[in-house]
Design a protein around this nucleic acid. Structure first.
Lengths: 187, 187
DNA sequence: GTCTATAGGACGATAGAC
DNA sequence: GTCTATCGTCCTATAGAC
């Protein structure tokens, strides 16, 4: 892994753990084993480096989700697989976390990947729910768009509650609760 | 409002908007219209002031929720009222937000109010759900604890998604989706 | 109680040598 | 490409006068 690459990966890790304000160029450099000059040679500054890191995290999230949404099995089964996928609950969502970062949300460039990721996720999941409905697998009373937003919210909120409790099991409980609610609408 | 009070309220507002790392004593003083000496006279430092602010925000959240959980109407109606209560979706949850703040979660003293608030909230909501079940209002297949965690997660995640989209309506959509799912289990 | 002065360090970035 | 030196600013806190 070359220096540029190490800088991006270090930034991703630090952004995930400390957020934008809590991540200093110095910390990035140390973690990457690179000097000041090295960092400023490859990137214009902290925002530029953050953009590379955020973009990559967003793509990763999207790719993983798509793999499950487009995977094998009936729609409801794919949704269940997506919801149940093992996640590092106590670390939270690397993209959702940025939502609480003022400097990220205030910068249109940094904000865009975050916005697009969740817009895509909600739409994509709504599509699979609509599929399930057409297949007669799901209650027609459910609105796919609202249901999709609620389910994605359960994951994002599950991270919050797990962190608050200091217990990853709380995340799993939120997912269980959501699946319990969904099950009543599955034929 | 005396100086001490203004300092706490200023800290609450700044903590909500900028988080712990993003909130400086200087900014607190300016917003409160107080000098350095004044702040350090009333509080030992930033963590001490933050504790006062966090504790108050936690109590406020709890009091508001309790007012709805203990309010008039059938259990499901009270839950609906709680979920549908108007909130400043784009500002997020003043307590849930702290969950993403490393310095807060790393300090047991600052962390406690956050932890307790959500532990109480989940338990209290589970109680109302159990009540609804006993009343024959709610499907016995639903686990009160898991359902409560999922519903609270929808709110917390709804904030995340609304902020990501830059649209408070997304929060409302998450709540709608959750209520849509819940409705299928109400007799 | 509140003020100003001051401290030591970190932040984010730039300059210029190699 | 990478290094060290340097910059101006902000951070959090303390000291001591009023």
């Amino acid at each position: 892994m070359d220096t540029r690459e190490r800088l991006i990966e270090s930034t991703r890790a630090l952004l995930w753990e400390y957020g934008y304000v809590g991540t200093s160029p110095k910390a990035i450099q140390q973690r990457a084993g690179a000097g000041q000059g090295s960092m400023y040679h490859h990137f214009r500054g902290k925002p530029d480096l953050a953009l590379a890191a955020i973009t990559r995290s967003a793509e990763e999230l999207r790719d993983r989700a798509e793999a499950e949404f487009a995977g094998p099995g009936a729609p409801v089964q794919r949704i269940t697989a997506y919801l149940r996928r093992e996640r590092e609950a106590l670390r939270g969502c690397p993209v959702g976390r940025l939502t609480q970062d003022r400097d990220v949300m205030a910068d249109p460039t940094l904000r865009r990947p975050v916005e697009e990721t969740f817009a895509w996720l909600r739409t994509r999941l709504a599509g699979v729910l609509a599929e399930a409905r057409v297949d007669g697998e799901l209650d027609t009373a459910l609105d796919p768009a609202a249901t999709a937003t609620a389910l994605v919210a359960v994951l994002q909120g599950g991270y919050v509650l797990a962190r608050a409790a200091g217990d990853a099991e709380v995340y799993a409980q939120a997912v269980d609760g959501a699946l319990g609610l969904l099950t009543g609408h599955v034929h």
